[in-house]
Design a protein around this nucleic acid. Sequence first.
DNA 1: GATGAATGAGGTTTCATTCAT
DNA 2: TATGAATGAAACCTCATTCAT
Lengths: 188, 188, 188, 188
Amino acid sequence: MARARSPEKRAAILEGAVLEIAENGLGAATAKIAQRAGVAEGTLFTYFANKEELLNELYLELKGEVYARVNAGFPQKASLERRAQHVWTTYLDWAIEFPMKRKASVLLNVSDVITADTRARAAIGRELVDAALTELEGRGGLKGLPAGFAAATMSAIQEAAMDFIAKYPKQRKDLTERGFLLLWRAVK
Amino acid sequence: MARARSPEKRAAILEGAVLEIAENGLGAATAKIAQRAGVAEGTLFTYFANKEELLNELYLELKGEVYARVNAGFPQKASLERRAQHVWTTYLDWAIEFPMKRKASVLLNVSDVITADTRARAAIGRELVDAALTELEGRGGLKGLPAGFAAATMSAIQEAAMDFIAKYPKQRKDLTERGFLLLWRAVK
Amino acid sequence: MARARSPEKRAAILEGAVLEIAENGLGAATAKIAQRAGVAEGTLFTYFANKEELLNELYLELKGEVYARVNAGFPQKASLERRAQHVWTTYLDWAIEFPMKRKASVLLNVSDVITADTRARAAIGRELVDAALTELEGRGGLKGLPAGFAAATMSAIQEAAMDFIAKYPKQRKDLTERGFLLLWRAVK
Amino acid sequence: MARARSPEKRAAILEGAVLEIAENGLGAATAKIAQRAGVAEGTLFTYFANKEELLNELYLELKGEVYARVNAGFPQKASLERRAQHVWTTYLDWAIEFPMKRKASVLLNVSDVITADTRARAAIGRELVDAALTELEGRGGLKGLPAGFAAATMSAIQEAAMDFIAKYPKQRKDLTERGFLLLWRAVK
DNA sequence: GATGAATGAGGTTTCATTCAT
DNA sequence: TATGAATGAAACCTCATTCAT
């Protein structure tokens, strides 16, 4: 059952999953994941009913981690631009700091193992971000477009920016700032 | 002479691969792919040495198909904006028309089975697009950023746009146009 | 603790391998071997990483079994002739008693799956035999010939003797004795 | 059918089989054999009904080749010792000259694909050898032992000798001569 | 709860043989 | 006759999951 005795072990398994998935894709073997986590093959299944659940939980964990970062220090009273920039920068920093997590996150995202329910649950914790992005969507460039388009666009440009930051780490600061400018010009 | 290798059969296998991958991810079974293509399990391996080669060939095929479309009717003499818009629209149309191909393309793209060599070979046929995008990179929004950033940004925004067009097909025209405007404002 | 790996199961797999190989050669299917051993196909691979390892381990097992027999009751203080005869007789008896093992052993021997390392490791446990045969090589018939030639010659004549004993089991005793006489006259 | 149009092609296939079998054992793929022979996969089956027949034919070919050599220049009127030595030397020379053929021959010999009928047919052409060996069997060391034991013993010692000649080619002459002496002392 | 041996379905790939060309 | 594409059974091996310990 999913009643975890040791949160450390649970975390270790998720961590192992990140590494294995980043290296071998979603086809990563549960046995390898367990091994990386330093637990027995069977132990994995006392923390997660099956592989699918593990992947969905991992998705939630990764999203949750990012949102927690974004929410901490969120400049709630600042201008829309400052708030948007906070979201932009925080996520970019996280992705650069944890490239494996980002890789796993991307793979989970495009796969079909993540259920609609999981995606919905991942939205919780994203209220502040959503509020800012919704405000953005009332603006010039995005007015009239479907809800969520701003978020999608931002995240899309971020993916591009991240790939380049990964390739040219020295230009990280520049790419982060100029990337946001690009976005801002697009949507403002 | 013995029977000649049939381009139709090769195409059928690639087509089967697209469908299976779109439904089941890159873990799609070669046996299922062969079945979809209407050939025997073993036949797949007379056309592709192994699954990895099949996936790499499929990648080339999909990229090639898109570039062929883009190149056909490319307004070489037109303004940069018109050329950029041509690229934008053509790719978007292709992706909307063949959602399975797009899905497979995305999965291949983020996976690690596509070799650097294959990615390099895929670049052939993209000269016109590259020329336009390179010109774009000399412009205001992107000046000084690494080469390829324009292409990445465009493709990133396109991915976002496509997701929404898939969800709201009725707004296709609007999303296509407004999406490009977004991009254009960002980079000009 | 989980279930411990069972030496009985390991032995059963090796036993199954002997039978299958004796009947079908080294091409014997791992599935058939597992079936003979009364375990699941997959179980075989928890005991041996792959078929090659299984074959190498089997080789060691068979050699080890013979040497154990030879060493038990080895007349260490007796004359060279008596010691040589002990080796001769013991091996011959083993081969007659376990024709399947001998068959498997022969096939493994001439195949290329047995690594140099395995062959080297098999030498351990053969010290007594080697000592006797080395002493033999200092004698008339073999003096000046490369080390190991005595062993090779003995084993060669034994192979011949065994084939005949297999064909004429009633003359077993006579063939065993006369065969040794042959050898002895050759090398003394 | 086995009605060969081109003896050259047939020979090429057998030659290819020798090389492939020497390298990969009897599991050698017919396609690879055909490739080595410079003919198409299917062509192999116009010369040999199936793989089993190919292997049996190859066995006959190899045995035939050796016996042809032995018979050519057979000192029919010479002493038994000289005749035995002729057999000994000729075979050893052949095996040293064509190590691949010898390897294939050994593998075929210990396998079960060679039918009793094939083995019987291989005996044709061995009359001179058999006559000499039969005479040998009437002698001291072998008297009373089953027919064929002399041949088996000789061939057994030869195998040992060959292994060593292969390892120490410089001692070839010495090993050939001393090996025969060994045999001769054993049986005379 | 933790462990890892056991399982067997399923995956990729090979291969002898057939047969259209 | 020669060719090599086509076939599908069968080979080796992996893996998610179960369960005895």
